[in-house]
Design a binder for these strands. Structure first.
Length: 478
RNA sequence: UCCCCAAUAGCUCAGUUGGUUAGAGCGACGGACUGUUAAUCCGUAGGUCGUAGGUUCAAGUCCUACUUGGGGAGCCA
C-alpha cells in the first residue's frame, strides 16, 4: 500500500478508506480497552489520531509505543468519536521502526524551555514549535525565489571564499590550508600567505554585494541568497556567526525604486506565509500568547497574526535621518533625559532610538533614508548636499533593522574620492571600479537578513531558534 | 568585548538569619478507569546541589576563580 502524508489525510481523506501512514509518536494516552496515539510525520503541525484497540494488539507491543518512537500504521480512516478531530485512523497493523526509551529520550510530552531545546538542537525538530518554525523558514526561502523569479531577477551565486578584505562589514573568518602550528614565514616575520592555497590571504565572505553589482550591471536585476560569515564576538538574540542573507541588486533603480521594491517584497513574503502556512502561524500565535501570559501587561506585544496583518496592510513610513533626529530631539523621552545615548545630528542611531521611532512614535515599520555619509559605507551615493548619502534602513518592531540598502555611487571620480578619504584600497578592487569605468549606470540594492525575517514571521525572540544549527561564539556543536 | 542575572531530580523551579533525613509540579514507571485530547485518580523510583578552591564546629545557602546558559549594550543583517 502506498504511504500517505498526514497533511493529505487530514485535508482530503475519505471515511472508509484504507490507508498507510508513517511518522513519529507525539503522545499516547488511553484506558483499559483502547489506546490513542498522536502521530506526526512533519508534513503538518497537526497530528493524526491513531486508535489502537487493546484486543487487536499484544500488551507488551503497545508498551513500546512511547513518545518519539517511529511507526508505520495501516488501518481504516473513520469518523472520530472525539471532538478535537474530524477523522482518525483505526489501526489494524502497526510496525515499530524504532523505539524511544522514555527514560532517556529528552523530548517528553511536556512544556520544555527554548533554552533546553537549543541544547538538544538535534532533536528539537520533533517539537511542534520547531517543526512549525522550520516549515515557515522553508516557505520563506521558496517565496523569495518565487518573488524574484516572477520579477525577472536572476539568482546569482557570489563566492563564499573571497580575497577581498575591504568590504568593511565586520571581522572575517580566515580560510587557509597553511599549518596552524608552524606556518611559512616571510623575511619580515609575517605569515607568508603567498604559499597559501589561493596564493594570498583569503576569508569567508561577509557580503556578496560587491560581486552582486558586477552581475546587476549586465544582467539588469540579480539577487543573491546564501550564507554569510561574521567573526564578530556578538552575543545577542539578533546575531549569528553564520547566517543567510538575500541581496538584490538592480541596475537603473534609484533610492525610491529601491524602497518600493523592499516594501513590496516584504509584504509579498508576509502574504505568502499567511496564504501557505496558516496552521503553523496559528500554532505559533497560540504558543506566543501562552508565553506572554506570564509577562506583565505593559510588556506584552501584539498577537503574531495581528502583527503580520498589521504590517501587511499599512504603508511603511518614509522619513529622512534628519527628520528622525528632530523627532527624537523633541520627544518627551529625550526631554526627560530617558535616552541612554544622546541624540545629535551625525551620530548613529542606537537601538533605543530606532525602537522609539518604530514602536512609540510611528507605530509601524519605518524606512529611514539619507544618513550622514560618515556613518555609512563608501559605496553609497552622495546626495547633492554633500553631507548625506542615499542610504535606506527598514526598521521593524522588536527586531530592529531588517533591511539595509542604498543607491550606489555610480560616478567613478566621486567613488574613488570617497574611497581615498576613508582608506579603502581602490587598487585591489580594480574589478569593482571597472563597473564605473565602463557603461556605469545608476543602480541600487539592499540586504535582508533571512533569519531576522524568519524571526519576524514566527514571533521567535532568539535568532538561534530560527536556524537549524546556530553558529555563535563558543558554539558550533551539531 | 562590557554590564546584570542564573546554575538544586529527566524538565521547570522552591529551599528561611549557615544547623538533623534536600522538597513540589510536570515527565517517567506500576496500578485503576467504557473513547482519550499535554486525559483523570492512586502509588513508586529518581539528587556527588555546575567545577575547583576558601571561610566555618557545620555550606545547597557565605567568599574567590573558572565554565556554561540567559537578558541587556556595542558591532550589524
Amino acid at each position: 500500500m502506498e504511504r500517505k502524508k498526514i497533511k493529505e489525510v487530514l485535508k482530503a481523506g475519505q471515511v472508509g478508506e484504507k490507508i498507510l501512514v508513517k511518522g513519529w509518536v507525539r503522545t499516547k494516552r488511553g484506558s483499559k480497552n483502547v489506546q490513542f496515539i498522536a502521530l506526526n510525520d512533519g508534513s503538518t503541525i497537526l497530528n493524526l489520531q491513531v486508535v489502537a484497540e487493546i484486543e487487536n494488539f499484544k500488551e507488551d507491543f503497545l508498551k513500546d509505543i512511547n513518545s518519539g518512537a517511529s511507526l508505520a500504521v495501516t488501518g481504516e480512516l473513520v469518523k472520530s468519536k472525539g471532538t478535537e478531530q474530524s477523522v482518525e485512523l483505526n489501526a489494524t497493523e502497526i510496525t515499530i521502526y524504532g523505539k524511544a526509551d522514555p527514560d532517556k529520550y529528552p523530548i517528553q510530552p511536556k512544556r520544555h524551555t527554548l533554552e533546553f531545546l537549543r541544547e538538544n538542537a538535534h532533536l528539537r525538530f520533533r517539537t511542534g514549535t520547531f517543526s512549525a518554525v522550520f516549515r515557515v523558514r522553508h516557505a520563506m526561502a521558496f517565496a523569495i525565489h518565487n518573488y524574484f523569479n516572477f520579477k525577472g531577477f536572476y539568482y546569482l551565486n557570489t563566492p563564499l571564499i573571497t580575497a577581498s578584505d575591504a568590504e568593511g562589514a565586520g571581522q572575517m573568518f580566515r580560510v587557509t590550508t597553511l599549518p596552524a602550528n608552524n606556518p611559512p614565514m616571510t623575511e619580515e616575520g609575517k605569515v607568508d600567505f603567498s604559499q597559501d592555497f589561493f596564493g594570498g590571504s583569503t576569508n569567508l565572505t561577509v557580503s556578496g554585494q560587491l560581486e552582486g553589482e558586477l552581475g546587476a550591471t549586465a544582467l539588469g536585476e540579480i539577487y543573491t541568497f546564501g550564507p554569510t560569515f561574521r567573526a564578530e564576538n556578538s552575543n545577542t538574540t539578533r546575531h549569528l556567526s553564520e547566517f543567510w542573507m538575500i541581496e538584490p541588486e538592480m541596475a537603473f533603480y534609484n533610492l525610491k525604486d529601491n524602497m518600493d521594491l523592499a516594501e513590496d517584497f516584504l509584504k509579498y513574503l508576509i502574504k505568502y506565509a499567511l496564504d501557505n502556512c496558516i496552521d503553523d502561524l496559528e500554532f505559533l500565535t497560540k504558543r506566543l500568547h501562552q508565553e506572554e501570559k506570564n509577562k506583565p501587561q505593559a510588556e506584552r506585544s501584539m498577537d503574531l497574526m495581528e502583527k503580520l496583518k498589521f504590517v501587511l496592510n499599512d504603508k511603511f513610513v518614509r522619513c529622512t535621518y534628519t527628520e528622525a533626529i528632530d523627532i527624537l530631539k523633541n520627544s518627551k523621552q529625550n526631554k526627560k533625559g530617558k535616552f541612554h545615548y544622546p541624540v545629535e545630528w551625525g551620530v548613529d542611531l542606537q537601538s533605543e532610538h530606532e525602537r522609539y521611532l518604530v514602536e512609540k512614535h510611528f507605530g509601524k515599520p519605518v524606512i529611514l533614508i539619507d544618513y550622514p555619509k560618515d556613518i555609512k559605507a563608501f559605496y553609497m551615493k552622495m546626495n547633492s548636499d554633500n553631507k548625506t548619502v542615499a542610504a535606506m534602513d527598514v526598521l521593524f518592531p522588536q527586531i530592529g533593522e531588517i533591511i539595509g540598502g542604498s543607491e550606489r555611487e555610480a560616478d567613478y571620480d566621486k567613488l574613488l574620492k570617497r574611497m581615498t578619504e576613508i582608506g579603502v584600497p581602490a587598487k585591489s578592487m580594480w574589478w569593482y571600479m571597472d563597473t564605473r569605468r565602463f557603461g556605469s549606470v545608476p543602480h541600487s540594492g539592499f540586504g535582508l537578513g533571512f533569519e531576522r525575517l524568519v524571526m519576524f514571521m514566527t514571533g521567535m525572540g532568539n535568532i538561534r531558534d530560527v536556524i537549524p544549527f546556530p553558529r555563535t561564539p563558543k558554539n558550533a556543536e551539531f
